[in-house]
Amino acid sequence: MILLFSVFFMVGALAFVWSNVKMIKFSYDYQALLHERNELLRKNQILKVERESLQSLNRIRVLAREELGLIEPANTDRVTIFLK
C-alpha cells in the first residue's frame, strides 16, 4: 500500500517537474524565436526603406530618359478607355 502510494507520489512529482521544465524550455525557445523575428522585422524594414528609396521618382525619371531613352507620347498617340 505504502509502496503504491510512493509510486503515485513520485509519478505526480515527476509530472509536475516535467511540465515546469518543459514550460521553461518553451519560453527559452519562444524568446529565441521572438528575437529572430524582431531581427527579421528590422531587416524587412531596412529593405522596405531601400525599396522606397529606389522608387524615388527622380531616379526613375533619370533611368527612363537617360538609360532607356523613353519619351512621353504625344496626345494623338494616346487612347483613353473608360469602363462603364
Partner: peptide, 12 residues
C-alpha cells in the same frame, strides 16, 4: 483625357 486623343467607353 485631352481633346486630341481618342476616348472609348467600354460597357462591361
Amino acid at each position: 483625357p485631352s481633346k486630341e486623343e481618342r476616348v472609348y467607353i467600354l460597357d462591361r
